[in-house]
Amino acid sequence: MTAVLAFTVFSTVTAGLYLALSRDLFRCVIGLALLGAAANLVLFAAGRLDSPLPAVVPSGEQVLTDAANPLPQALVLTAIVIGFALVCYSLVLLLRLMHDARTDDALALRHAEPVPDDPVKPPAGDPDCDVRWPPPPDSR
């Protein structure tokens, strides 16, 4: 069982990293979501895996023997909730970004850091992409 889980984590991490390194923004977010799933599996493995026994200490005993440790399962639950929120947020951000920038290529996204046009001096920056005074009338 542990070996199967280890292999699952391995393949999930591999797939997640491969997608996260992609230039395609959507694939990148999906890759991060997969990596999150892999992290949850690692956390899950921190409790014992094999036992089907309920995580209750029998009366008269002090220590829980063979059953799985329920704490990592609670931790995984927390991590799933947080991860879900972050994936939702990043998908919304991604939609807005792809809509405004009209591209889904990570290399074309140079609005925050314009490409230098001079070998020595940094670019002066695009006034449309920077804070101005007075503020533009349709500022949200």
Partner: peptide, 26 residues
């Protein structure tokens, strides 16, 4: 647009950091 661009880059690298942290904690 530059803020959306920046927040995406901030998101990707920081998310990677927290996922690594989660695995390490586990």
């Amino acid at each position: 647009l530059d803020q959306l661009d920046a927040s995406f880059k901030y998101l990707v690298l920081n998310l990677l950091g927290t996922l690594l942290l989660l695995m390490a904690v586990g």
